[in-house]
Design a binder for these strands. Sequence first.
DNA 1: GCTAAATGTGAACACCCGGTCACATTTGCA
DNA 2: TGCAAATGTGACCGGGTGTTCACATTTAGC
Lengths: 216, 216
Amino acid sequence: MSRRERTERAILQALEDQIRETGMAGVGVNSVAKRAGVSKELIYRYFDGMPGLMMAWMQEQDFWTKRANVVKNDESSEQTPAALILAMLREQMDGLANNQALCEVRRWELIERNEVSAKLADRRESAARAFIDRVDGLTDDVDVPAVVSIMLAGILYLMLRSKTEEYFLGVSLRTPEGWDRLWKATQHLTGALPPDLKEQSLRSLETRRTPKETDQ
Amino acid sequence: MSRRERTERAILQALEDQIRETGMAGVGVNSVAKRAGVSKELIYRYFDGMPGLMMAWMQEQDFWTKRANVVKNDESSEQTPAALILAMLREQMDGLANNQALCEVRRWELIERNEVSAKLADRRESAARAFIDRVDGLTDDVDVPAVVSIMLAGILYLMLRSKTEEYFLGVSLRTPEGWDRLWKATQHLTGALPPDLKEQSLRSLETRRTPKETDQ
DNA sequence: GCTAAATGTGAACACCCGGTCACATTTGCA
DNA sequence: TGCAAATGTGACCGGGTGTTCACATTTAGC
């Protein structure tokens, strides 16, 4: 392992630690360089500044390709769409619960709008659409993407919220019991999906929905 | 209107404009004072610094006491708990859609943890609990607070997300059509509540969003 | 061994931040 | 009118930011 490679790793690790400890707000060339025990000049020389460093780190993480594959593998088995949706929601829940740095980045994405956050969001959205397209269009009377959006978004919000707030509507966001309630509630809500969603028919797509197209 | 009163109002208005334009990240004594066309010293003299100014502004907004009263008034009428929940969700949706500054503050609350954000969150949580306690405990087999938490949190997340992202699971977050889908999905999910909570839930809320004047 | 490129350091730069100070102007009251 | 309090201004301070520069050290090749 070359000398340069070693310091690059040190910088990337320092970035991750900094994100975890202070959130994206506390991330900057000064803090990261100091934490890595290295001159900040090297961040410019090796990564071309903070945006480039963030990109390099995000590349290493590769959250979504990993996670999406997990769900995709489940597809090969004979699960019902409703079960697939539940599995996906579960993945999201655990994925965020076990990765503080990822939580911080997603909070940051809610506020910042730049090249990095845009790229992250785009990749996530395309992976998510590939998933939702497989369980959509199976029924007329339920807008599956919209319904799943509410539930997924709810889980995301409560996950992000748990850092700064202890309770939400009286439900604890920082205890296993609280998340058990929320998970059971998610399962219950999934019961609102139509029963025939499990046995898909060859019904043609209706015009209710606006045609999907990739954003930009 | 005294001279001091006039400059105090100018400062408060400048704060709100600044929040709306740059988000909480761009808010500081310098920016607000410059925008108000006033020396920043006055922020310290009249409001005892930025935290005090934020508190004063938040006091003027008083979102939740206002909004909570709206829902509370509905209680006097003969609505079912499920209809009350739907009305509350609708209030949240419209309240955020028509107040950009409020959206920014709530994004900020997701990241920052300090005296101001804590006070805001506490007041909101207590008001929300007072609401949820009225519709809870009506049935054994459904955890009403948890279920409503998922839905409310989902609406909040998508509302906040709409600023930085155009689509979520392929659902547009920036068009009335997209929000119509999400609202119908919310109504559908409310159907997962027990039957005795559900009757007439869809009846009173068929009209689209009513434009509300800015609250201040 | 010698030289040049690669690697790393620390200082300097201009800028913005929150906070405080002395001082000028205006108001209100005796 | 006169004088003190209220109101408002601009400069100043220490500290943090991102960015770049000149210089020191190490590595690699001839």
